[in-house]
């Protein structure tokens, strides 16, 4: 066992929440891949004889206003929620890291342009900006992904830019320059590998936020349309029944959402523990 693996195990053992987060991640991955197959009922099938049934053995999370099994829909929704969040975070991670790295390495005009762009994006409450982007690009799932990616861009740009400009004048970069490496080659081969851990921590914390954001957008009726199963829209559909006591329609998808976000937040903390040099003594 390498020392790094030992270190990872040490960090996991010393924090219960990190272990829970890893367990949650495995569960989420399973559901994302096999969710629809594991669902006991068809998520779209409306059962006329099972409208708004409270949770029971046959329906662990009850049924909704048109007689669909809430549990099956929650399992089904996992894939959509995760793919929205993963693709949004993936997009902004790749784009943001590249823009930030080039801005930090080359500086000058490009750098100040990028800083202006970041400032402009950050000049809005981000959720409002996402709403506006979806409203003007058109109401679709793809545009939710783009909107979430755009509002997350500044975080990656800032982190990468700062990390690259710190290392830009260090000796290993100088050595690489003297050996005749080109700028892009230094960025990709020498600088980026050094800052991947920082970016990974950022991405993990960001995933939870991206899920909340996407669910918030579909809660207000943007992006995902009924009858598609998605946690945010399921909470929205159940919202009106909460005041009359049919709590299970909104509660269980809401809990699924919360646990997922919680899992990513703990995972981010765990990754930080693992990569933080001060704890790696």
């Amino acid at each position: 066992m390498s020392s790094f693996t030992r270190h990872v195990f040490f960090c996991l053992r010393s924090n219960v929440f990190s272990c829970l987060a890893v367990g949650g991640l495995v569960l989420l991955a399973t559901l994302t891949v096999a969710g629809p197959a594991l669902a006991p009922y068809d998520a779209f099938q409306c059962m006329d004889d099972a409208i708004m049934l409270p949770p029971s053995l046959a329906h662990p999370c009850g049924t909704d206003q048109v007689g669909r099994d809430v549990f099956s829909r929650i399992l089904m929704a996992c894939r959509l929620d995760m793919s929205i969040a993963l693709s949004a975070v993936g997009l902004s991670l790749v784009a943001g890291t590249l823009i930030g790295a080039f801005a930090g390495y080359y500086g000058k005009l490009f750098d100040s342009l990028v800083s202006r762009l970041v400032d402009t994006i950050m000049a809005f409450p981000l959720f409002v900006l996402a709403m506006a982007i979806v409203a003007s690009l058109g109401n679709s799932v793809a545009n939710i992904v783009y909107a979430t990616a755009i509002i997350n861009l500044p975080f990656y740009i800032r982190v990468t830019r700062a990390e690259v400009s710190v290392r830009r004048n260090s000796q290993f970069v100088e050595a690489a320059l003297i050996s005749g490496n080109s700028g892009p080659r230094i960025i990709f081969r020498h600088l980026l590998p050094n800052i991947i851990p920082t970016i990974m921590v950022q991405a993990s914390l960001n995933l939870g936020w991206a899920i909340l954001n996407a669910a918030g957008l579909s809660f207000i009726g943007l992006g995902v349309r009924p009858p598609d199963a998605e946690w945010g829209i399921m909470v929205a559909e159940g919202a009106q029944y909460i005041v009359s006591g049919e709590w299970w329609i909104a509660l269980f998808p809401g809990i699924a959402l919360m646990l997922t976000v919680l899992c990513f937040n703990f995972l981010g903390d765990a990754l930080r523990d693992i990569f933080d040099p001060r704890r790696r003594a």
């Binding site: 939870g208 909340l212 669910a215 918030g216 809660f219 945010g232 909470v235 929205a236 159940g238 919202a239 909460i242 005041v243 709590w247 909104a250 509660l251 809401g254 959402l257 919360m258 976000v261 919680l262 937040n265």
Partner: peptide
């Protein structure tokens, strides 16, 4: 607190 979706907290409080 950061993991709770706002709209869900609201509904929970209402319930």
């Amino acid at each position: 607190g950061v993991s709770l979706p706002t709209f869900f907290t609201g509904l929970l409080l209402v319930f």
